[in-house]
Write a protein that binds this DNA or RNA. Structure first.
Length: 511
RNA sequence: AGGCUCGUAGCUCAACUUGGUAGAGCAACGGACUCUUAAUCCGUGAGUUGGGGGUUCGAAUCCCCCCGGGCCUACCA
């Protein structure tokens, strides 16, 4: 980019940078000793102990650093707002506090909103009542900003000129984070959520593990994968769509409780609930079943929600959602019957299609859909949207669940539950299928169907033979759980789009 | 992928319905001001109106195509 391509403000800031260098001032020095942050100073300042007498230095000395977000120059003195990770604090600079002609020739001439600076001095309360750091000891430029930073003005009640353009915010998340404090808060909470979840699992003695993201055969969910290639081995590889099959291999190996928090990748569309890479927690515990896992899930979600809010209740889209206590447990077919009046348990595909298309007038069903797909459609259209408070949906049809154990009592069903909150699936769990013969048959059935959907793929390529071999060595009975971290974060932070809980969501490239 | 909708100065927005020299606030620049805080006051500059084409004497405005975003639908969790 030649300088003539730059905007007026960008050119001027480059000129200022050159002028700083000519004066022997490094626009990008190496370090600054920070010993205090904005929030902590505002919190601990005590008028009785710290407020200086007229003409004296205060007793509360600090060294802070951050970005200049607003400047109020009044001749020989200036107030500016400095923002660090914890918040905003006002800084007061007087010409005589700085060496030689620094104030006149450098501070007012060569520094701008957006520059990162270090300030050392004392804390005092101004005549207007604001706790402020006076740069009495030292002031240094720490990084010159060459692009104009959006300036957000705010009072206690209102914010002005806030950067709202979604595209701008997602493409330049660094600017979004720099000027929108609420955005930082969301990602801080996301980190707290993951940390609370990890703590919960660690406390129970489960081992955190890492399994392959690059897999020769993908499995563990039904989704289209991203495909890549390893050069040295000259072999195709897939980015995992789930961790499940590797984590269960570890149960074969004798680990009795394992979990992984990591990215899965699904080559599907984008929406406010879907990003091609997303974060999943999966956990498997030997010798337990899905009923036990329901109790654990209640505990886990309540613990995480309470860690973020001090209360298990959150407000989302006008609903108060209570994540405390025990949650209703409703079987898949009961839920459909409650919502529609039709008992579809043991109904065949023809009957389900008839009810869906003619009685319920669902638009998306077609006669060629198989039983699983039809039931899934009926459920997600008639039941799911109305489940606002946390609800366990249990005992799904076997057609929808190739990795779950068949139900110990009810024919045609599996031991599975999904947790639904605010009309969305948040968690999915089963009594894990550990019968290698049953698993092989279900894989083969699924593979035949999937191979038809992808060009040039043979059914046998889609079957994870090594996983079946592992099961043949013997996997203990086990309960497994998967939780979508992004969606849980959306609920617990009140965000309406998955892009608002992912720092760098996938977008089309800029032209 | 389909439908709807949006794209104007560094940022937030107006002008579009009804075609007539593209405006405001903040930011920037020059000046005044040593307790201000959406600082204030005086002055100045800043735009390929996302890109291309068309209609018209004349297009930010009307039409078409393309690019990018948002929402909804579909695949999916």
């Amino acid at each position: 980019m030649s300088s003539s391509d730059l905007g007026e403000q960008e050119q001027r800031r480059r000129t200022e940078r050159d002028a700083l260098e000519e004066r022997g001032i490094d626009p990008y020095p190496y370090a600054w000793d920070v010993d205090a942050h904005a929030a902590e100073i505002l919190d601990t300042f005590d008028d009785d102990k710290h407020q200086p007498e007229d003409g004296e230095k205060g007793a509360y000395q600090v060294s802070i650093a951050g970005r200049i977000t607003d400047l109020r120059v009044m001749g020989g003195s200036t107030f500016f707002d400095l923002r660090d990770e914890t918040g905003r604090i006002q800084v007061y600079v007087r010409a005589q506090d700085l060496p030689d002609d620094y104030y006149e020739e450098v501070f007012t001439e060569l520094l701008d909103i957006g520059d990162i600076v270090g300030v050392e001095g004392f804390v005092f309360r101004t005549g207007m009542g604001e706790v402020t750091v006076r740069a009495a000891e030292d002031f240094q430029l720490l990084a010159k900003s060459l692009r104009p930073m959006p300036v957000v003005k705010e009072t206690d009640e209102e914010t002005f000129y806030e950067v709202t353009d979604k595209e701008f915010r997602y493409r330049r998340r660094y600017v979004d984070l720099a000027v929108n404090p609420d955005v930082r808060a969301v990602f801080r909470r996301r980190a707290e959520l993951i940390s609370a979840m990890r703590g919960f699992l660690d406390d129970r003695g489960y081992l955190e593990v890492e399994t392959p993201i690059l897999q020769p055969v993908y499995g563990g969910a039904s989704a289209r994968p991203f495909k890549t290639h390893h050069n040295a081995l000259d072999m195709p590889l897939y980015l995992r769509i789930a961790d499940e099959l590797y984590l269960k291999r570890l149960l074969v190996g004798g680990l009795e409780g394992v979990y992984e928090i990591g990215k899965d990748f699904r080559n599907e569309g984008l929406s406010r609930f879907h990003n091609p890479e997303f974060t999943m927690m999966e956990c498997y515990v030997a010798y337990k079943d899905y009923r036990w896992m329901m109790d654990v899930t209640e505990d886990l979600v309540r613990t995480v929600a309470t860690a973020l809010h001090d209360t298990p209740t959150v407000e989302l889209e006008g609903h108060d959602i209570d994540l405390g206590g025990k949650w209703p447990r409703l079987s898949f077919f009961e839920a459909i019957e409650d919502a529609t009046g039709f008992d579809l348990y043991r109904a065949d595909a023809e009957r389900v299609y008839d009810v869906a298309a003619n009685e319920l007038e669902l638009q998306e069903v077609t006669p060629d859909m198989d039983l699983g797909a039809l039931l899934d459609e009926v459920f997600s259209e008639t039941v799911e949207p109305d489940l606002i408070q946390p609800t366990f949906i249990t005992d799904h049809p076997i057609e929808l669940s190739p990795l779950a154990k068949t139900h110990r009592e009810k024919e045609g069903l599996v031991e599975r539950f999904e947790l639904v909150v605010a009309g969305r699936e948040i968690a999915n769990a089963f009594s894990e299928l550990n019968d290698p013969q049953d698993q092989r048959e279900r894989f083969e059935k699924q593979a035949r169907r999937r191979a038809r959907e992808v060009d040039g793929v043979k059914p046998e390529d889609l079957i994870d033979q090594d996983y079946l071999r592992a099961l043949e060595y013997g996997m203990p009975p086990a309960a497994g759980l998967g939780v979508g971290i992004d969606r849980l974060t959306m609920i617990l932070t009140g965000q309406g789009s998955i892009r608002d809980v992912i720092l760098f969501p996938l977008l089309r490239p800029e032209r």
